[in-house]
Each structure stands twice: as C-alpha cells, then as structure tokens.
Design a protein around this nucleic acid. Structure first.
Lengths: 110, 110
DNA sequence: TAGACATTCAACCATTTGGTTGACGATCCC
DNA sequence: GGGATCGTCAACCAAATGGTTGAATGTCTA
C-alpha cells in the first residue's frame, strides 16, 4: 500500500534518499542525473528511486529513453500531520488519527 | 547520534513503535504495561523501547524495579522541520478530523 | 530469606536492506 | 544497421532488523 506511514517513514530513514528528495526540490531530474553526485552504482540509485516511488514521495515518467523523476510533496503531508499530533494538540486519539489519514488518502483526488 | 533524522525516521517506520508512542501520549507507562496490548514478547517490546530511546523519542527512568517510559515530543521537531521544507502542505485540517471522529462514532457501535 | 515480579541479556533465526556486478531491453542518432 | 546511452533485472553478498526463547539481574514483599 503506497503512502502508508510505514513506507513513507522507511523511505525517509535513508540519507541518500533524503538527499535525492532535496535535489528534486530544485527541479525534475533524469535517473542518470540523480545518480551523478553519489558514489554508489546507478542500479543502487534506481532501487532508491523505486522505494521513493512506492512510498508515493516521487513519481517517475518515461519519455523516450529518459525517465524523469518528480517530487510529490503532498505525500509527506500525512506523515507530517501524524507527527504534528505529538505536542501540538491536546491528547488526541492517534489511532483514530491514523485511520482518518487513511480515509483521507482514499478520498484525495488525483 | 541520538535525534538524527536517520534514527528518528527509522524508529517511526515501525507500526508497533508508532503505537507505543501513541500510548505514551496518554501517560507515562512501565515497560510491562506498554507490552500488554501487543502479542509479541516482552523482550521484543524492550528492544523497540531501546530504539525509541536511542532516537530520542522517549526517555526511560528506572524507579525501583519498574522502568517508566515517557514521551519526548520535542524530538520529533527536527524531523518535522525537515519535512516542512518540502512543499506547502496545508496545516492540519482539524475540522475534517473532527467530522471524521463523528462519523466514526456513528458507524462503530460499542 | 525465599519467592515473585520487572526487565534485560545472549544466542539464535528468518527476512529485509543496501550495495555490488554483469547482462539485458529500449531508444536515440550517425 | 550499428554503436552509444538510459535504465532495469537478476544473482549475489554482508549487515541490519524484528522476532523468538531461556537464563540472568535487580528489586520488592511475605
């Protein structure tokens, strides 16, 4: 299930993947260009991009032989909102909150 | 290094650990009481609590033979701030959450 | 003091993760 | 057509993860 808190937080737990997200904040990028600043193999980057895609944090679109990677900032919103639950509001039922986020995801257009 | 984004996000990626954090939102708890609702062993819970502690998300204080677990909501701030850098997701829609709670009450008889 | 309780430690296991390399399927362009 | 480029796949590896069980440690209490 894409966009679950599990996959989003797991995707964010890796520094390489967070760096990729930061790069994509500037602009959409081809896979090869994403890989350029890193010292690991292209295949490894490709795997990282898969994980980010499964988490819904980016989308990939192939045009010709180039696959373009695009940041999807909204995906982080659920995780962000979940985290806001700690500290900001008064004791709230976070289980209910998690269910709320799930139903919200189902109903979010696009 | 406690409180790094790596350890915080990795700690949050597990549903058991998120559930524990939610429980601690209500009140401080002893390890045994934390473990009670889960079906895994006490040792496994102890490990989860270690991970949450290393991430700085909780603290543990031993009084007598009981070790009390306490939520540290501030620790999430670093991660939260990092995430805010991505996109302008709207602030938490508390109204929507309240409506959700109402419909949930209607649909889940007790 | 002996037992019960609270918690961790140690050893172990299966699965996942993050990386490698080499081969492969597309696609562009000369 | 044929070579270069883009990206993934497959097989493999080491290390980390999440779980188990049983023994050990420390503390309370009858």
């Amino acid at each position: 299930m894409a966009n679950s808190l599990d996959t989003i937080f797991a995707a964010l737990a890796d520094p390489t993947r967070r760096a990729i997200l930061s790069m994509l904040l500037e602009d959409d990028m081809a896979v090869t260009d994403v890989a350029e600043p890193f010292e690991i193999s292209l295949a490894a980057i490709s795997k990282h991009l898969m994980i980010l895609t499964r988490a819904g944090l980016i989308t990939q679109e192939k045009r010709g032989r180039v696959k373009w990677c695009k940041l999807e900032p909204d995906a982080m919103r659920n995780a962000s909102v979940w985290m806001q639950g700690f500290g900001q509001f008064e004791p709230v039922n976070l289980d209910a909150f998690e269910r709320f986020l799930e139903t919200e995801l189902d109903s979010t257009p696009e």
